[in-house]
Design a protein around this nucleic acid. Sequence first.
DNA 1: GCCAACGTTGGC
DNA 2: GCCAACGTTGGC
Length: 137
Amino acid sequence: MAHWLMKSEPFKYSWDQLVKDGRTHWDGVRNYQAANNLKAMKVGDLAFFYHSNEGVEIVGIAKIVKEYYPDPSDPAGKFGMVDVAPVKKLVKPVPLKAIKEDPRLTDIALVRQSRLSVQPVSDEHWNVLLEMGETSL
DNA sequence: GCCAACGTTGGC
DNA sequence: GCCAACGTTGGC
């Protein structure tokens, strides 16, 4: 199973909103690299839910419940989206600062490619982040 | 196909 | 609100 990290600005769409909604369309991605990551997602894959701009931390874990399909909000019809549902909130949110300070995570895309909104997370990094979040699945 | 101009993301 | 990083656009 592959692991991912998805960013959202909490004032646009927060973790709490996802919990409230039960599931959501991850629409609006307009970057090819991010879209390629969306395409690679399989039902059942897990993704960290990261709050950018405000909070600036990983707050929860979501799962993919529907694979890549056309995003109706894209007038050109080029981009797609997936559907995600909440799995669980991290016991302890993991702030970007702590991620940057941990020598085990220096290679993570969150640090190296800070603007990429949908990114893969290696199993090794996934486990480190779960541990930092004091959360088990 | 190059590259300058411009727009967007996102941390601080 | 600023600015660095970086993706996209468009003229040539």
